[in-house]
Design a protein around this nucleic acid. Structure first.
Lengths: 340, 340
DNA sequence: GTGAAAGCGCTAACAC
DNA sequence: GTGTTAGCGCTTTCAC
C-alpha cells in the first residue's frame, strides 16, 4: 500500500497542531469556520482518510457492529442482512458478518471476534444448536448492547425483533375461512420451535373466533420437509370427512402438500385451498401460485439495527430491556387459496 | 462495558513486561515454553482478549477484508458471501460487508470505509451502474489487494473468480442435443452483459460442434424478465419450422418460456425441451422441474477468498496479476429436458 | 530469552 | 480558538 496521509501531515502543511486538525475534521464547535474550511480543504487535496483503527482505539467507539446469522445462503437471513446493512450504512456504521452454521461453537467464536474488534453492539439470530445461552447472557452482564432478531429467547431479557407468528397463523387461517372453505386443516412442524407452536396457536384462535370447531385429526404433524408434507395430503384424504383447505406452517410444507394433493388428482384451489408462510421466491412461480404470509425480512433487519442503535446511544439497557419489536405479517394472496 | 483486561494487567500479575506477554501470546519463537505456558494460562484465567484495534494499528495488519456485493437479498450473492465468510473465518479473517445496491456511489463509499478500516484486502462484484471504474483502478495503484468475483472487468488487470459462462452455454446446448432434440433455440438477454454474450457463444459453438446449422431466427432477444420471455414461446411457435427445444440464458427467462409454452398447450419435455441457467431454488419445485446449470456460488466465494489471501500474503500483485480462476459449471438435469 | 523504549494515528483533558 | 501533553493497547526494534 502507498504511504498514508495522517493528520500530522496536514498539521505540518498548515502549521497547526494535530489536535486542531483533528477537531476541525470532527467539526468541533470551538474551532473557527476559517480553520475548519482550511483543514477540510487541505484534507481533501491531500486525499486524507481517517484511520478508523486509531480513532476507535482512542475514542472507544468503533462505529462497527457484529452480526451473527445462521447462514447467508438462506434467503431469509440474506434479506435481513440487507436491511441491517442498509440502515447501518445510513447511520455511519459498518457491519462485521459471521455465520454460526447453526452451531454454538461458531456462535461463540463470532462473539469473541466481535469483542476483540470492540464492536459497539451485536445483532444475532440464535443458532438451532444453542440451548445453553450463557455466551449471550455474558454479553448482557458485560453490558454489551445486544439485540436478537427472528430467533430470540425469552428468559434472557434481551430486546428483540420478531414477526408476529401467532397473528400470521391467525391471518392465514382467517383468510381461508373468508374465501369460503369450511374444513380447515393445518400442516404443522416440530412444536419445540416457537414459530411452529405460535402459528398453530394462531390457527386455533382463528377457528375459534370464527365459530368453527377445532378437529385434532385435521392437524398433521410434519417436520418442515417437502417429503413428509407430501404425505399430509394422503393422510387428509383418507379421513372420513376430509378437510377442504389447509394452512401450512411454512412454504416448503405447503409445497409438499400441494405436490401430494396433485398426485391424488385434487384441484387447487377449487377442491382444496392452500396457504403457506414465508413468501419464498418460488411462491409465485409454481402452479398454482402459492398464497403465503410475508415476514417483513428487510424491515426486520432495519428495526433490529434501529433498536441496537438506541441501546448504543443511551447505554441504558434498562430502558429498552426486554423490549420486543413485533412486526406485522402481511398476507400475500395468490391462486392457491382463491376458491371460485 | 466492563473493564477490559490488557496485556499490562497480565504483565503486572506475572512480573513480566508487556513485550514478553505480547510475544508469549503470539507464540514468538524466542520465548521459553515455560513463559508461554504461564502467560497463556494467566490470560485464560483473567479472560484476556486481545484488542484487535490496537494490534492492527500497531502491526499494520487488520486481518479484516472488505466485501462488496450488489445486494444480500439476491440468492446468488448470499451464497457467495457464505463461501467467503466460511473460508475467511477458517483463516482467521473477519469480513466487513457492504452493499452497492448496483450504484457507483455506494460502491465508492464502501471502498472509503474499507480503506479507513485498513482492511488487508477487498473482494468485490462490480455494480451494474459502474461504467467508470477509476475507484477500482485506484486501489490497484495503491497496491490494495483486490479480487473480483462474478462480475469483473478485463481492462483493469485485476484477478477474478468467475464461472465459465461459455462452457455453461455449451454444456446446456449439448445436453439438449444429446437428449435427441433437433432444432435448438436460445432465449438470450442484453448482449452488453458478458454473461449473456458468453452463453450465446457457447450455444453457437455447441451447435457447430454437433454439425447443426445455427438459425438466427431461433435466437430470441429477451431482457431477462419473465414477461418478455413468455412471448418467446409465442414467437418460436409462429415460425414456419418451430424449434423443439430451447436453452434460456437464465432460469427466470426459462420460467417465462415455460409459462408461454404451457399457455400454447405445448408439452414439456415431450414436444419441447427447456434448460435454464443459475440453478435457482425454485427449479426443482415448478412443473415440470427445470433443468439448469449450477454456477458453484459457494465455491466461487471460497476461491475468491483464497486468491485474495494469496495476494495479501505475497503482496506481489504481479504474480497473480490478471489471474482468472474459472469455475466449471455443472449440469443439473431435471424433467424439463428429458425427451422420452 | 527477556526488558526498555518508542510509536502506530488519533482524541481529549487541561491549559491559556 | 488553539496548543500541550498524555495515552488508547499493542508490537517491535534494539539492547544485553
Amino acid at each position: 500500500m502507498s504511504i498514508r496521509i495522517t493528520i500530522s501531515d496536514i498539521a505540518r502543511e498548515l502549521k497547526l497542531t494535530t489536535a486542531t486538525v483533528s477537531r476541525a475534521l470532527n467539526n468541533h464547535p470551538r474551532i473557527s469556520k476559517k480553520t475548519k474550511q482550511l483543514v477540510q480543504d487541505k484534507a481533501l487535496a491531500m486525499k486524507y482518510r481517517r484511520n478508523s483503527l486509531a480513532s476507535s482505539l482512542r475514542s472507544g467507539k468503533s462505529h462497527t457492529i457484529g452480526v451473527i446469522i445462521p447462514s447467508a445462503r438462506v434467503n431469509f437471513f440474506g434479506s435481513v442482512v440487507h436491511g441491517i446493512q442498509n440502515m447501518a450504512g445510513k447511520n455511519g456504521y459498518s457491519i462485521i458478518l459471521c455465520q454460526s452454521e447453526e452451531t454454538t461453537l461458531l456462535e461463540k467464536n463470532a462473539i469473541d471476534t466481535f469483542l476483540g474488534a470492540r464492536v459497539d453492539g451485536i445483532l444475532a439470530s440464535i443458532a438451532l444448536e444453542s440451548e445453553d445461552l450463557t455466551h449471550f447472557a455474558e454479553l448482557r452482564k458485560k453490558n454489551v448492547p445486544l439485540v436478537f432478531f427472528d430467533r430470540s429467547n425469552d428468559q434472557l431479557e434481551i430486546p428483540s425483533v420478531e414477526v408476529d407468528d401467532f397473528k400470521g397463523g391467525y391471518m392465514a387461517t382467517s383468510h381461508l375461512i373468508e374465501m369460503g372453505y369450511k374444513r380447515i386443516a393445518h400442516v404443522s412442524g416440530p412444536q419445540h420451535l416457537k414459530i411452529c407452536s405460535e402459528r398453530l396457536n394462531g390457527y386455533k384462535a382463528a377457528l375459534k373466533d370464527n365459530g368453527m370447531k377445532m378437529n385434532p385429526a385435521y392437524i398433521f404433524q410434519g417436520d418442515l420437509s417437502i417429503e413428509m408434507c407430501q404425505q399430509a395430503a394422503d393422510y387428509f384424504l383418507t379421513l372420513p370427512i376430509p378437510p377442504d383447505a389447509a394452512f401450512a406452517v411454512e412454504d416448503f410444507s405447503a409445497l409438499g402438500l400441494i405436490k401430494g394433493l396433485k398426485k391424488n388428482g385434487i384441484n387447487i384451489p377449487q377442491d382444496f385451498g392452500v396457504i403457506g408462510f414465508a413468501n419464498e421466491n418460488f411462491d409465485e412461480h409454481i402452479t398454482p401460485s402459492l398464497s403465503s404470509v410475508e415476514q417483513q425480512t428487510v424491515q426486520m433487519g432495519e428495526e433490529a439495527f434501529k433498536l441496537l442503535l438506541q441501546l448504543i446511544k443511551t447505554q441504558k439497557m434498562e430502558t429498552v430491556l426486554n423490549h420486543k419489536v413485533v412486526l406485522e405479517p402481511v398476507l400475500c394472496i395468490r391462486e392457491s387459496s382463491k376458491k371460485p
